[in-house]
């Protein structure tokens, strides 16, 4: 499997480009990418130390859903020490429901929030792409 994301150069902040075969998979991929950035790309720990979480959220539209989802992932990491390593995302109208698998740990790079600025989310058929800016 290819990595599915890369960091783009952005002077003040961090921009990420993410791709996947469906919108739900794209959301999961974006969450993994953010956690990689927050842990300085450190490999996940052994699976036996993993834990799971469930969450659901509402949003105004698909772009808003992406930002809100990423901010949930950031909150779990910085406030609860839960590092999302995989997610099963189900779209639900403009919202979503997700089951997250991850490990307990501390972040190495603090991210403030995902932003709506310069946000692109496109997709059709089996090719979905997003790029977004994160305030570091």
């Amino acid at each position: 499997m290819t990595r599915g994301w890369r960091a783009l150069d952005h002077t003040a902040d961090l921009a990420l480009s993410v791709w996947a075969e469906s919108e739900a998979a794209l959301l999961a991929q974006a969450a993994r990418a953010l956690v990689c950035v927050m842990t300085d790309d450190a490999r996940p720990g052994p699976r036996r130390s993993w834990d799971t979480r469930e969450l659901a959220l509402d949003a105004l539209d698909p772009e808003d859903r992406l930002v809100r989802w990423l901010n949930e992932v950031i909150y779990l990491a910085v406030a609860e020490g839960f590092l999302t390593r995989a997610a099963d995302v189900r779209l639900d109208g403009n919202g979503l429901a997700a089951r997250l698998a991850g490990e307990r740990g501390a972040v190495a790079t603090e991210l403030k929030s995902a932003t709506y600025h310069d946000l692109h989310l496109t997709g059709d058929g089996g090719r979905w792409r997003a790029r977004f800016v994160v305030d570091v």
Partner: peptide, 9 residues
């Protein structure tokens, strides 16, 4: 000034 999000920094 530099590139921020929303307002420029």
């Amino acid at each position: 000034m530099h590139w921020g999000y929303g307002f420029p920094i």
